[in-house]
Design a protein around this nucleic acid. Structure first.
Lengths: 261, 261
DNA sequence: CGCTCACTTGAAGCAAATCAATTAGTGTGG
DNA sequence: CCACACTAATTGATTTGCTTCAAGTGAGCG
């Protein structure tokens, strides 16, 4: 296992807390994208850096009053909603550089719960202060729109997956999506550690744990990849992309939008 | 059939074009919500009122450059994405007072096509001008955030539906969602005309046309509703809500978020 | 009036869910 | 350190809800 897989991401140390947005390796994936240095400084001033969440700790829970949006620095977070009958549905998986909490703006209340899948450090951005700041930093609003718009587009892509794809296609699309997002973060695109369990993957893709397990086995028998619990090594990336329904040229761009969130 | 069903909505006449946001019956569902009168006037100045689309006409198509967002005045619009394999997936159904096109902001390109399901009139809001105006009208940005946030939340609710619900529950949730949204627009909540075909409903809910048809028949046999092609009369609203998985108290609020968009 | 298209209904097939049993890791306390 | 319990994952057998295939039916329209 290479040392650039996800679990090797360490929580930020106190000494590095001062190195903020400007020097953050994620700033070209995150909110400061496209802002100039002085604007990033102003953004940086309102961002709170929290102590890392341990695996299983909640960032917020369904119904909590909305105060802030959050950017993942390292680790990963899953969000899920719960129906009245109590069944859970995972709605999002957030990797470093991604922002969550945006679905809570419209009624000032989180419509989902967010939980750490592993040790995870985050930036907290109080939304009312962000709105104030945005009036002084014109590009900032546009960044927020961009991020929210992307989230809408990726939810729609996930809908497509759920409505039209079979188990193999769903899992392939999920893996290609992870691969693409990890690559953007300078991790390996073929070798990585899934922070989600089989159960979570199944829930996310609308399948059962058994189906996920069987599909992984089939991929492995077909020589497309090897797995060892949460560790995945993709051997035939292009074939997997083909199964996911992502053509050769479109792969780089559209994969990112296809199951993100 | 009452005269307040959806198809009876007429395209706005030229003489009424002057009655803008301020007097629009939809303004408390639409973008101007919460703005004061003078701000609504300024918003009104940038809004273009287009000549109505006829059934089957495109508002925009997948890949078109993003210039504007659109508010439905009357009629209805569906949006859909197309996979490389050519299968379509309907991602949204927009009723009067609802805003579409927000998923195009992040890369300046519409990721879906939008087509009129019936004669439909719209307000077009050029996005760059809206962004400029928003700097002068503080509440406007927040409105946009609210609307986008709501769209994210409703997509997530639809995901839940697709991943966890069976055919009956999906169709019931769809009907309850329509009912709730129509009620907010002062239409009957029990008697209405669906602008979507069975095929569209099936596609939207991830089911085949036959399953939709059979499920409608079952609902009818169970005395929950009567249908005559696209006309629906809900006889037992609460039982339908129960099937949709929407409890008595939660119905009014959460139904709105459950399958909207 | 006959054509088409949307919808309905029935029968058969199938992919994934469910049920069930086993194995492989993970953690805990003696 | 090992025995124990517990959870995660795999694999097999069976069931099932939806799809697919097929054959109508009926509304709308030139």
């Amino acid at each position: 296992m290479k040392d650039n897989v996800m679990t090797s991401l360490q929580p930020i140390k106190l000494s590095t807390l001062k190195t903020a947005c400007k020097s953050c390796s994620l700033h070209d994936l995150c909110l400061p994208l496209g802002l100039d240095l002085s604007d990033i400084d102003r953004l940086n001033e309102i961002i709170k850096r929290r102590k890392p969440l341990q695996k299983g700790e909640y960032l917020f829970q369904n119904g909590n009053t909305f105060t802030s949006i959050y950017a993942v620095r390292s680790g990963s977070i899953k969000t899920y909603t719960e129906s009245e009958q109590g069944d859970e549905q995972i709605t999002g998986l957030y990797l470093p550089g991604e922002i969550l909490g945006l679905d809570a703006i419209h009624n000032n209340q989180h419509p989902c719960s967010a939980i750490a899948l592993e040790t995870t450090s985050l930036c907290e951005i109080p939304f009312n202060i962000l709105e104030e700041l945005s009036e002084a930093v014109p590009g900032l609003y546009h960044q927020l729109f961009r991020i929210m718009s992307k989230e809408i587009a990726s939810d729609e892509a996930l809908l497509m997956l759920m409505a039209q794809k079979n188990a193999e296609e769903r899992l392939a699309a999920f893996l290609i999506n992870m691969s693409t997002r990890l690559k953007q973060r300078n991790f390996s695109e073929t070798e990585f550690h899934l922070s989600m369990s089989r159960k979570d993957i199944g829930n996310y893709l609308g399948l059962t744990i058994e189906t996920i397990s069987r599909t992984f086995s089939r991929f492995q028998n077909d020589g497309l990849l090897t797995t060892q619990r949460k560790y995945v090594n993709i051997l035939k990336l292009n074939e997997l992309k083909a199964i996911a329904g992502i053509g050769r040229h479109a792969a780089e761009n559209s994969a990112d939008d296809s199951v993100a969130g």
